[in-house]
Amino acid sequence: MLVKLNDVVDRITGNEDRLVTTLPFYLAGEHYDSESIGIYKRGELNSTTVGKLGFKFHFPFKKGDTIFMSRNAHLKKAGMVMYDGICSDTSYILRTKDEKVLLHEYLPLVIQNEKFWRFFEENKSGSVNFLLNWKEMKEYEFELPAVEEQRKIVEEVWAIENAIKKYEKLMVATDELVKSQFIEMFKDVDQGYLSDVAMITMGQSPSGKTYNTDGEGVPFYQGKTEFGELYIGEPTTWTTSPTRYAECNDVLMSVRAPVGSTNLAIEHCCLGRGLAGIRPIEGKSTSLFILYSMRSIESQIEGMGVGSTFKAINKDQVYKLPIPLAPLSLQEQFVELAEQSDKSKFELKNCIDSAKETMQAIIATRV
Rank of each mutant, 00 (worst) to 15 (best):
199 M>V: 09
170 L>Q: 12
200 I>H: 04
163 A>I: 04
195 S>L: 05
162 N>R: 14
200 I>N: 03
220 F>E: 08
203 G>Q: 01
161 E>I: 07
209 K>Y: 01
205 S>A: 08
157 V>L: 10
218 V>F: 02
236 T>P: 09
215 G>T: 12
189 V>E: 06
184 E>D: 15
227 F>D: 11
203 G>C: 05
178 V>W: 00
239 T>W: 07
160 I>W: 05
227 F>N: 10
211 Y>S: 04
185 M>Q: 06
228 G>Y: 13
165 K>W: 08
217 G>N: 10
159 A>R: 12
198 A>N: 13
181 Q>H: 08
152 K>N: 13
167 Y>R: 04
226 E>R: 13
193 Y>T: 10
189 V>H: 08
238 W>F: 14
209 K>M: 02
216 E>N: 15
188 D>S: 12
205 S>W: 00
206 P>F: 00
205 S>H: 00
217 G>R: 07
200 I>M: 03
224 K>S: 15
214 D>P: 14
227 F>I: 10
210 T>Y: 04
240 T>L: 00
190 D>G: 13
165 K>C: 06
185 M>E: 05
210 T>P: 11
224 K>Y: 07
235 P>S: 06
214 D>W: 03
234 E>S: 14
168 E>F: 00
237 T>N: 08
155 E>I: 05
219 P>D: 12
158 W>D: 01
176 E>S: 01
180 S>P: 04
212 N>I: 06
155 E>K: 13
238 W>G: 14
179 K>G: 08
239 T>S: 14
240 T>G: 13
174 T>M: 02
197 V>K: 06
219 P>S: 08
235 P>Q: 07
211 Y>L: 07
214 D>R: 14
166 K>V: 10
